[in-house]
């Protein structure tokens, strides 16, 4: 254990290093796929598949023994290029989207199981999410995105709120905890873009509230957790808190992307997860700005909704000031 502690200290990855290796890996993957395109490998299905498998295997093999940061850039590019080649090759061979997605999922799960690398685990998790949404989309019904959102909202809440349980369960889950957490957040926000930036897919506005219900349930649960941290004990205070929370849920009913962002923001703050928190700020700002382009509500409705939400939040503020003064128990 001490050795590992030492290893971690010398191998400590700041956020900038992770982003750097992702950008580098991505660039290298693109140029490498460009190289393969010019050599004409895309004419041969079988060689694409074989090369793809070799690359994925290679990436896993490199990280089997060690998870040194210096290998990140190369393993990201080999893994991503391998996965892309395999998917191109197999789809050229006539495999359908569903089967392809299932294969990608299987490979990703195996990778997550066998690797120690943060980056490979994260990429695999991202691949699983993309495969999952691809399968849902084959049903030609964009409203199924709500199933995706519900699942990821639930998983993210569970993952964040049960950190101690998950990391104690098994050493493997312990190493996978961080990459899956960031993976869940990014996957959830990617899903929220579908419903937050309307016009990307032909999602039916009439069913947009489906995700709001899930968000509402999750929000109430998280608020309950927050009340525990805030040491709220009096019934009256609790009543106010839930009344104001319900009001928030009602005013964001037709914009689940905004309530979803607020939910994740509270969740990240609850467990003091700074990167996630930063992502939610950007997400929230983006979804509020997208709200302007929402064509389903008239500007007047929107303006009134926003204005009253603003008033509700100012009420929240005054309430917090009034109720949570100093450190006395409530």
């Amino acid at each position: 254990m001490l050795a590992e502690k030492e290893h971690r200290a010398s191998n400590q990855s700041s956020l900038s290093i992770k982003i750097l290796s992702i950008i580098g890996g991505f660039l290298a993957t693109l140029t490498f796929l460009g190289f393969l395109a010019i050599t004409g490998i895309y004419d041969s299905k079988i060689s694409m598949v074989i090369l793809g498998i070799l690359f994925i295997g290679g990436a896993i093999f490199i990280n089997l023994k060690t998870d040194h940061l210096l290998l990140d850039t190369i393993s990201i590019s080999i893994f991503a290029a391998g996965l892309a080649l395999l998917v191109f090759g197999l789809s050229e061979m006539g495999l359908g989207e569903v089967v392809l997605s299932l294969i990608v999922m299987l490979i990703s799960v195996l990778t997550m199981y066998s690797t120690k690398s943060y980056m490979l685990s994260f990429l695999s998790f991202a691949a699983i999410s993309i495969a999952f949404i691809t399968i849902l989309m084959t049903f030609d019904n964009f409203n199924l995105v709500h199933i995706y959102l519900a699942l990821y909202t639930f998983l993210l809440c569970y993952w964040c709120l049960n950190e101690s349980k998950i990391i104690s369960l098994h050493p493997k889950l312990n190493t996978l905890y961080n990459p899956i957490r960031i993976g869940l957040i990014i996957a959830l926000f990617s899903g929220l873009i579908f419903i937050g930036a309307r016009g990307i897919i032909g999602i039916q506005f009439n069913f947009i509230w489906l995700s709001s219900i899930v968000n509402a349930a999750a929000l109430i649960y998280v608020v309950r957790e927050i009340c525990i941290v805030l040491e709220v004990q009096s019934q009256k205070t609790k009543l106010y808190v839930y009344a104001l929370s319900s009001l928030t849920i009602i005013i964001t009913f037709y914009s689940p992307a905004i309530s979803g962002s607020i939910l994740v923001m509270l969740l990240c703050f609850l467990v003091n997860y700074k990167t996630g928190f930063g992502i939610t700020i950007i997400g929230l700002l983006y979804f509020i700005s997208q709200y302007y382009y929402d064509l389903n509500l008239s500007l007047l409705t929107k303006s009134l909704l926003l204005f009253f939400s603003g008033i509700v939040f100012i009420a929240f503020y005054l309430f917090t000031n009034y109720m949570l003064k100093g450190n006395e128990k409530i």
Binding site: Y292, L299, K302, S303, L305, L306, F307, S309
Partner: peptide, 22 residues
Amino acid sequence: KLFFISLGVGFTVSGILFFFAY
């Protein structure tokens, strides 16, 4: 406190903004 006042001021101001865009 910061969260509520930011959202409060932000939403109120954008409500007014949308009102004029209308």
